[in-house]
Amino acid sequence: MVLSKTGSSVKAKRLFLIHLTMLVIGIFSVDASAKRLTIEIEIKNHFFIPDKIEIPANTKIKLIVHNRDSSSEEFESYELNREKLIMGERKANIFIGPLAAGEYPFFGEFNQKTAQGWIIVK
């Protein structure tokens, strides 16, 4: 069957719309399936509370760090390759993982003597 020029363009348009719909559905379903664990911790008087967080292996988590101090802090971890400034009395979201089992230390760069924490992946 020979399609006219307009016929083929209509077909192409339809095909495009089908793909677009599939893509949108796909993205939303992937997003829903990857619904991640959220863990909230605090910084108080330059300490992380709690300073140990246990998470399951091979899972992505959203770590929300609430800085209750008036001074800013930098969340940093060499093991996790993460680095984020958290201003005074603000919070920050940091996505972590998926990780293999093990211990991953993190620290507050501006107050390293006190601000130390560990993510324990089991």
């Binding site: 101090d69 001074s71 800013s72 802090e73 930098e74 400034l85 005074g88 501006f110």
Partner: peptide, 13 residues
């Protein structure tokens, strides 16, 4: 900017 933020943080401490 990172240095200034650190400095601000020191001021509050």
């Amino acid at each position: 900017a990172e240095i200034i933020v650190f400095f601000q943080s020191s001021l509050a401490n």
